[in-house]
C-alpha cells in the first residue's frame, strides 16, 4: 500500500515492526516500531510513558516527511 500511494504522488511513511518486509515491498521512508502486537506502544510502561514513546515515533515520522532521501531509508 505504501508503494502504491507513493506511486500516485503522495508521500508515505511506513511505521512497522518487521522492517525487512517493508524494505522488500518497497516503502521508501520506514520507521521501525516497537513490537508486532503493539507497534506504537509498550504495555510494560505506564500509559504516560507509552504515550511519550508513541509521540516520539510520530515525531520521527514527521521528521522523515521533512527529510530528503536518495533511496529507501530506515529512520
Amino acid at each position: 500500500m505504501a508503494k502504491e500511494i507513493e506511486r500516485a504522488g503522495i508521500l508515505t511513511v511506513h511505521i512497522c515492526t518487521i522492517v525487512p518486509i517493508s524494505k522488500t515491498v518497497g516503502a521508501n521512508r520506514i520507521i521501525p516500531a516497537s513490537a508486532i502486537p503493539y507497534p506504537l506502544g509498550d504495555p510494560s510502561k505506564s500509559r504516560e510513558e507509552e504515550r511519550a514513546l508513541r509521540r516520539k515515533m510520530v515525531e520521527k515520522a514527521f521528521n522523515a516527511i521533512k527529510t530528503k532521501i536518495d533511496g529507501q531509508k530506515v529512520f
Binding site: M1, A2, E4, I5, A8, G9, I10, L11, T12, V13, H14, I15, C16, T17, I18, S22, A27, A33, I36, P37, P39, L40, V58, A61, I65
Partner: peptide, 19 residues
C-alpha cells in the same frame, strides 16, 4: 482506491502503521 480520495481531497502525506 484510497489514493483517489486522498488526491481529490488534497492530502499531501500519509502515515501507514503496520503490526
Amino acid at each position: 482506491k484510497i489514493v483517489k480520495d486522498l488526491i481529490r481531497d488534497g492530502v499531501q502525506a500519509v502515515i501507514i502503521s503496520s503490526t
